[in-house]
Structure formats: C-alpha cells, structure tokens
C-alpha cells in the first residue's frame, strides 16, 4: 500500500496551496491591521474572471494570466484607496469589507447564476510519481506556490519595500518618522494580497469548480492559519498551513473524509486554548 506516500504527496500539495492563499491575508492583517472579510471574494472574483476570459471571450491562457494578475493588482489598489484607507475601528472594517464581499458575490450570482462552472486546466492530465497519480495542474500549483513563497520571502526580508512593510507592521507612527509612507506600503500590501488570491485561483480553480460561495471556506482557512501561525508572521503562516494541510490529509486518508475539515478546525480551537498567542507567539519582526 502506498498510503504514506499518498498522504505525503497530497499533504505537500494541499499545504503549499493553503500557504499561498493565507500568506496574503496574514500580511494584510499584520501590516494594514485590517480584518479583510472580503479576502475570499477576491479569490472568487479572479476565478470568474478567468472563466469569463477563457470560455466567453476565448482568450488564450497566457493572455488570461496576465490580464487576471494585472486586474487583481488594480483591484487591490483601488480597494485600498476607495474603501480600506478610511477604515478606523474593527467593526467598521468588518462591516464594510463584509458588505463588499456580499455585493460582489451576489453580482456574480446575477451574472453567472449560482450554478457551478469549471475552468479548463492550464496543465491537463496526470503523472505518476512513485506509484501515486498526481494531477499535473496540482503539481504545477504546488511548484508555483513554492516559488512564489520564496519570492515573497525575498520581498519581505531582503528588499527595501519589505523593510518598510515590516516597519509599518510593527509601528505605524515610528515608520512614518523614519520617512516611510505607510499609505503606499498598505496599498502595496493589498495589491499583493489580491494578486496572490488571483494566482491561487488560476492555479487551484481549474482542479475544482467555481461557484459564487467558493471563497468563504478560503477565508475561514486563512483565518485559521493566522490564528495558528500568529498575526502577520510570515513563517508562522507557512508552518501553520503545513500543519493544517497535513492533518487534513491524514484524517481524510486514514480516518474518514467526513471528519477532516471539522478536525482541522477543532484543532485550531485546541491550539487557541493551550497557546493563546498562536503556536509561535511572535509577530512580523
């Protein structure tokens, strides 16, 4: 039986994809101090954008990729400038971003109905690795996610922009005194998180179906990762994604798929109970 291998490969793929779409959320949370309840909807929006471009406008895939990423960046910046920038307190943030998410979701329902549709794969077919069949699309998604996470790490820890991001995350006032423009940094962070959601949709949605509510589980998951990994903690988020991804696959394969999501989420409650500041108890340094 190839069961340990199955858990290993699928766990790896699942975790890397989880990491890809929670890092953006974690950054927004840590840097802009915004609980972005609309985070899931950006994933959904990007997926429908891909669907519209590929199946309705019949654009070739490479063009689609460029258009999607570019529009997600634009969306992120305007989202920041028009709405997020003026948000002050917690409830206002949640109310506003949540209502934005609802509007976007129902707009999608009005245009595409709530029937699930699917997107053609960028990398169709599957390959066998050590006797385990893996979908090419998933392998590509995992590899891209890994590379993107490396790029992100470089961006956050080795560039000037990254320094600014970390400075703002730590202390907005102090960053301002040091000559950093927090507005620009936050706009950049939101553009980054939106485009990450867009890329995640490009990579992951072809394997699944798209539906107007597909973003909500992503939001819950991203929240869970932040709880587990600590707010705005880059490595914490990645490690948390791996913990959730692997425990999910373990339970799916060895116990019963019906319990996997409940168990993964219950584990988070447990962690919160035992280690209330997250597993690592630090934040973006």
């Amino acid at each position: 039986m190839a069961e340990p291998l199955v858990v290993f490969f699928y766990g790896l793929v699942t975790s890397l994809i989880f990491a890809l779409y929670s890092v953006g959320f974690s950054l927004v949370f840590g840097v802009a101090r915004v609980i972005d309840a609309a985070y899931g909807i950006w994933y959904t929006t990007a997926a429908y954008l891909v669907y519209a471009l590929v199946t309705r406008l019949l654009l070739p895939l490479p063009v689609t990729v460029v258009v999607v990423v570019a529009s997600m960046v634009a969306l992120g910046i305007s989202y920041y400038a028009v709405l997020v920038r003026g948000l002050q307190e917690k409830v206002e943030m949640i109310m506003t971003t949540f209502l934005v998410a609802l509007m976007a979701q129902y707009l999608i329902v009005a245009i595409f109905t709530n029937f699930p549709w699917s997107i053609p794969a960028l990398f169709p077919g599957s390959t066998q690795v050590l006797g385990v069949s893996l979908f090419n699309q998933q392998v590509a998604a995992a590899i891209t996610a890994f590379l993107l996470l490396l790029v992100l790490w470089y961006l956050v820890y080795r560039t000037k922009m990254g320094l600014a991001i970390r400075a703002v995350a730590q202390d907005k006032e102090a960053a301002l005194l040091m000559g950093i423009n927090p507005d620009r940094v936050m706009a950049f962070t939101l553009a980054l998180s939106c485009s990450l959601a867009g890329i995640a949709a490009l990579l992951q949605a072809p394997n699944s179906v798209i539906s107007p509510t597909m973003g909500w589980p992503m939001l819950t998951l991203a929240f869970a990762v932040v709880v587990l990994g600590g707010m705005g903690d880059f490595f914490g988020a990645i490690i948390a994604s791996f913990i959730i991804g692997f425990s999910y696959q373990l339970i799916t394969n060895l116990v019963n798929p019906l319990y996997s999501m409940a168990a993964a989420l219950a584990m988070i409650l447990l962690v919160l109970w035992l280690r209330p500041r997250g597993l690592f108890g630090r934040s973006l340094e």
Partner: peptide, 9 residues
C-alpha cells in the same frame, strides 16, 4: 483579536 477568531471558527 483572539476572541473574534474563536467565534469565527
């Protein structure tokens, strides 16, 4: 934010 997160999960 922890109470918020617990109630969300």
């Amino acid at each position: 934010h922890y109470f918020v997160l617990v109630t969300l999960v």
